[in-house]
């Protein structure tokens, strides 16, 4: 926890400094005795800096209590996030249906399902159901992408 507090303290202090710098670019006030658009961001900057420095000091003062765990495997989590990023990047180009089917199939496998028939039927069935539900049921067209013409 000590290391995490130090990381959090440092990151948030940096965030506070950047936010404060950006706040200097905002208009100060337009009318006398009237707080302008930069008034509230300045309060936030001050609070963020005070609290993040306090967290940093707290982290530096505390003793490490958390035993290191060498068994943690962050690979599936990282893979999940990478997969999500690829999916979101492909979504505007290939549309909801054509991107969701492989995405859904990959996720089912990641969560432990190995039966091919189940993977295939749910990977196709769920996105198709959602597309039809939103398009015809709720009149919310989901993104069609450049392959949208195939859907009619």
């Amino acid at each position: 926890m000590r290391i995490r507090n130090i990381i959090a303290g440092l990151t948030l202090t940096a965030l506070g400094l950047i936010y404060g710098f950006l706040t200097t670019g905002l208009p100060v006030r337009s009318l006398p005795n009237t707080p302008g658009p930069s008034f509230f961001p300045w309060i936030i900057t001050a609070l963020l800096l005070v609290l993040s420095v306090s967290l940093l000091v707290q982290g530096l003062r505390m003793e490490e209590t958390e035993p290191s765990n060498g068994k943690k495997r962050p690979i599936p989590q990282a893979l999940f996030l990478c997969l999500f990023i690829v999916y979101l990047a492909a979504l505007p180009f290939f549309g909801f249906l054509f991107t969701s089917i492989p995405f859904f199939a990959a996720l089912i496998v990641m969560y432990g399902e190995r039966r091919k028939a189940w993977v295939a039927s749910f990977a196709i069935g769920v996105p198709v159901f959602l597309l039809l539900l939103f398009r015809d049921g709720f009149s919310i067209p989901l993104p069609r992408g450049s392959l949208g013409f195939l859907l009619g």
């Binding site: 999500f84 995405f103 859904f104 996720l107 969560y111 432990g112 399902e113 749910f122 996105p127 959602l130």
Partner: peptide, 11 residues
């Protein structure tokens, strides 16, 4: 099976 519910939540 959670393997079907979690991907559905993602969508």
């Amino acid at each position: 099976p959670k393997a079907l519910m979690m991907p559905a939540i993602a969508l």
